[in-house]
Write a protein that binds this DNA or RNA. Structure first.
Lengths: 291, 291
DNA sequence: GGGCAACTGGAATATACGTTTCATTTTCGG
DNA sequence: CCGAAAATGAAACGTATATTCCAGTTGCCC
């Protein structure tokens, strides 16, 4: 009955602590309690909005079990437990989509503002999609390859060029030897010829794929240089040549595709590479430093 | 009593329609109804989770007024109205922060993944902040200035250079005459000297401000060239020289600041300029086309 | 395998909730 | 300024809700 006298372990007052607590204690819980606890974590919104009756039938337990779970976790009752699930939704920061609706409405007929909000929205969508689909193992593999490289060749033309521009800056700051394949005097093919299998490359290209980028990536592949690819689909001609590749689905607006997601990726890469090298005693970057 | 027989105007079933409906009809509503309707729009979470009693006291009306509002809008009762506010929270897509917590937990000790999620998170924060703080009038003013310009000079060094790189691409695609102030052979000061008061410039720089950018912006200002500035605070040395300026607060991670927000802004600018010129009979871009 | 504690299901209960009702006040046209 | 209609405040009402209680079942230790 008096389950709650638990002075040692404090009761979680925010969703994340509650989540950990449940995961931690689930193994030692009675069957029905564990059952409804699992349901709660996979259907948090159901707990937030439902009633004891509705949740009970959805999770196939008795309403009383919900109260028992709450007591078991140290809460005063189901309502107390429920408040945690509600707080989670309550103060959630607005998504930009929602903010932008407000912006659009306040702006009224202001076409400029609509344009701006459109691009902001596209950027947000891209970021969100990246966050949802990121495969961390692909990222790790890319870092493996690039951290082992002597020189990293950077290939990205036209719309994707800003990615290269930023990576070049970051690599420089981090003492990582690299070479942009974008000369003003047309010696790109020759630049690529200098690459050896001890080097590596990052190639970014999105539909419609720049012919130059494809050709250069192809050439590197033939020379045995591993190429890390950032592109927009599995059907990209770049993907087939890749040692590993990222699929980044950028949203577009007014015909201009966002670069936000790719940019986040290309910001993370240099730092991750530097970090990896630091751990391994920086076999490459040290060399680069000396010259 | 029978308020609801309103076959013509359908009852809004999603939050945004409800919002519009309320805004539209607020003027013709009785005092108390308008009062609680306004409260509902500014405290939607309160409606979603509160009870008639709690909402009534918070908005300083009687509980019955809530039911009256619901009926007035055509709902079956308060609970029906409340469900709209709940749906809004229910299916809201997760914020990346939340997704990334999951990513971090699933990734466990994976440091690479943490780095990546950090950059994604920083990008998302930047976008969100921009969405929240955008002043559309500043944007309009910037477009006014730039649409009237003969040639647009682009100034952004080092970390901000990708912004210029993208704008140059977009301007080219849109047939807008521009000049990047970033020559490989050190003639930037001379380039800037060509500018006249009929031109305009976009300068982007963030702390620590690149001395070159400051100097060139200053020089343009002295020559009477209006400068649109993108920077990170009102105290930026660039802000004082600006014809108009944007404050963009980029989040940073691992010492590298995100460019997502500024990038969204610099994507919107060229399109907005092109659009403005199209409306005004493209007095400048036509000229640029001919030469 | 017996006995005890823990767990579970289902009904009982007190409460809090949304809603309705009605008296009072306010608004506005004549 | 009067009177009808609308709007409002306050209390009463029925219902659905969270919670408790108790009987039945399961699991486990001695």
């Amino acid at each position: 009955m008096d389950d709650e006298p638990k002075p040692p372990s404090r009761v979680p007052r925010d969703f994340e602590s509650l989540r950990s607590t449940i995961i931690e204690r689930k193994a030692t819980m009675p069957k029905r309690l564990a059952q409804v606890a699992a349901f709660a974590l996979s259907n948090p919104d159901e707990i937030a909005f439902g009633t004891t009756a509705s949740i009970a039938s959805a999770s196939e337990v008795q309403p009383s079990t919900l109260v028992r779970l709450a007591h078991h976790l140290g809460y005063e009752g189901f309502s107390d437990l429920q408040s945690i699930f509600r707080e989670r939704l309550r103060d959630r920061t607005l998504t930009y989509e929602e903010r932008l609706v407000t912006l659009e409405q306040s702006g009224g007929e202001d076409e400029d503002a609509n344009l701006l909000s459109g691009f902001i929205s596209a950027a947000g969508q891209s970021i969100n999609r990246l966050a949802a689909t990121v495969q961390s193992d692909t990222f790790s593999k890319a870092v493996d390859i690039l951290a082992a490289a002597d020189t990293i060749y950077l290939i990205a033309k036209r719309r994707s060029y800003p990615l290269t521009a930023h990576m070049s800056y970051a690599f420089s700051k981090l003492n990582i030897r690299h070479q942009i394949v974008a000369s003003p005097n047309g010696v790109d093919p020759e630049t690529v010829q200098f690459a050896t299998p001890k080097d590596a490359a990052i190639a970014a290209s999105f539909s419609p794929y720049a012919a130059e980028s494809l050709g250069q990536a192809e050439m590197l592949k033939e020379r045995g240089v591993p190429v890390v690819v950032i592109t927009d689909s599995a059907f990209s001609p770049l993907a087939s040549n890749a040692a590993c590749w990222f699929e980044v689905a950028e949203a577009d607006f007014a015909g201009f595709r966002s670069l936000s997601a790719s940019m986040a990726l290309t910001m993370a890469l240099p730092v991750a590479i530097a970090e990896r090298r630091r751990k391994l005693g920086q076999p490459k970057s040290k060399k680069a430093k000396m010259e």
